[in-house]
Computed example of a mutant assay.
Amino acid sequence: MTETFPPDINGVSTTLGCLVAGLRDRGHRVVVTCPRAGTPRDLCEGDEVSGVALPFYREVRFGLPRRRAFLAEWREDPPDVVHIATEGPLGASALAAARALDLPVTTSLHTNFHAYARAYRLGWFARPVMGYLRRFHNRAANTFIPTAKQAAELEASGFERLMVLGRGVDTDLFSPARRDSGLRASWGASDETPVLLHVGRLAAEKNLDLLARAWSRAHASDPDARLVVVGDGPERARLERQVPGAVFAGALRGEALARYYASADAFLFPSVTETFGIVVLEAMASGLDCLAFDYAAGRQLIEPDVNGLLAPFGDSDTFLEQVPELLAARSRDRRERARDTGLRYGWTAVVDGFERNLIDVAERGQDGVPSRERWA
Rank of each mutant, 00 (worst) to 15 (best):
E235A: 15
A218F: 04
E192H: 13
T106D: 06
E325F: 12
D47L: 12
A53W: 10
L103Y: 07
S316M: 07
L173D: 03
P270M: 07
G182Y: 09
A258V: 07
D77M: 09
L320K: 11
E45K: 10
L211A: 06
T275E: 01
A328G: 12
Y57P: 04
A338Q: 02
L183Y: 08
G308K: 05
L326N: 01
S175E: 09
A296Y: 06
E355R: 09
A204N: 04
G11C: 09
M1D: 08
Q300D: 14
E59D: 15
Q150E: 12
L326Y: 03
Q300G: 13
K206L: 06
F293A: 05
F354R: 02
R99P: 02
V280T: 13
A204Y: 03
L109G: 00
T111V: 11
T341E: 11
S93H: 03
T111K: 02
A94N: 00
F174C: 05
G17N: 06
L343D: 14
G365D: 11
R179C: 11
G46M: 03
D367G: 15
I278D: 02
A214V: 08
I145M: 02
D170Y: 05
R374Q: 14
A100Q: 15
A97S: 06
V243A: 06
N138D: 05
L196P: 03
V350P: 00
R67H: 08
G314S: 09
D42I: 08
T171L: 02
H219D: 11
R121K: 12
D77K: 12
E235N: 11
A141W: 01
E282V: 04
